[in-house]
Design a protein around this nucleic acid. Structure first.
Ligand code: SF4
Ligand code: SF4
Lengths: 149, 149
DNA sequence: ATCATATAAGATAATATATGTCTTATATAA
DNA sequence: TTATATAAGACATATATTATCTTATATGAT
């Protein structure tokens, strides 16, 4: 099972789509879903969730659609993940204090808590803003492979 | 759904148990399962998987059981995770090159690949060895950064 | 006012995955 | 030979995710 689930991936695509068109008025779910290859009915449900969480704002009626709830640079991938699939959980004992009776004698738990923090911070650092920038977004990671032959 | 699944958690407990008794001959699954509060039949299946992966060695017959396949300091939590639940996958496109047709135009994928590497390295850095040491194993006051590249 | 378009909400079905249990076979020390 | 323990895999159950379907509601345009 993937950490980022399919629906979350769909939602991320839709959010990036909105980010790309930020400032140009509402984008209908139908067109966003079509362009981002997300099943339309599913897209509707996902947009509802995002709307409830105020990550987007709905505009009903013809010529309606959704607009980002904030600037692309203010919305992180972590927020999308948490809205769609809930918080990241390294193990059941990490979020739920009394999920495991062995908590007090367990040596693994603390390690997993540390790791979870790292993951969460990593996702929080990815903004929609940078996800709209194609090709040049990883210029400062020292990674540059992809030199065309 | 938790990143570390229940069966993996069980397996980790069993492995830590074996690590605690490393050098004292084989430990039967029955006693390990009882002490670590793992359903016996499930424990058998998990030990089989660990055995196939050479993380433990089986000794059949009475007074038999399992012994770690290597020193506790040589076995990481990552290995246990991968044997029981398969490799960590941030998203389906990360491991499976052709899981998504959008791969070439996707800005999210590279970010997730980076994150996955961090998680994997984090799990690989946790050895059974340190999981046997109880009572605040991070004596250097919680500042465990430096995940080795 | 009416209509076409688009969101809102939630029930339901279909899949996929994970977990737990059971049965039978096999190896080996005592 | 026997008691103990692993080996292997079928089977059943539980849970979670994904997809679809239906009905209701809001709103701009005609
Ligand atoms: S055994 Fe430890 S790591 Fe596993 S669920 Fe319990 S407290 Fe968490
Ligand atoms: S859209 Fe991007 S991140 Fe999502 S599965 Fe496809 S390649 Fe991976």
């Amino acid at each position: 099972m993937d950490i980022v689930r399919r629906n979350t991936d769909y939602a991320a695509r839709l959010m990036v789509h909105l980010a790309k068109h930020y400032g140009n008025g509402p984008i209908s779910t139908r067109t966003a879903a079509a362009e981002e290859q997300v099943p339309y009915q599913l897209a509707c449900k996902l947009m509802q969730k995002l709307n409830n969480a105020k990550l987007v704002t709905s505009c009903m009626g013809p010529k309606g659609g959704f607009v980002l709830g904030a600037e692309p640079s203010k919305i992180s991938l972590l927020e999308v993940v948490e809205v769609i699939q809930g918080p990241i959980s390294m193990n059941r004992c990490v979020l739920n204090e009394d999920a495991c009776s062995r908590k007090t004698i367990c040596t693994v738990r603390e390690k997993l808590i540390d790791l979870q923090k790292i993951i969460t911070k990593g996702l929080a650092a990815i903004t929609l803003d940078e996800l709209t920038r194609r090709g040049r977004s990883n210029r400062n990671t020292g990674k540059r492979k992809r030199i065309k032959q």
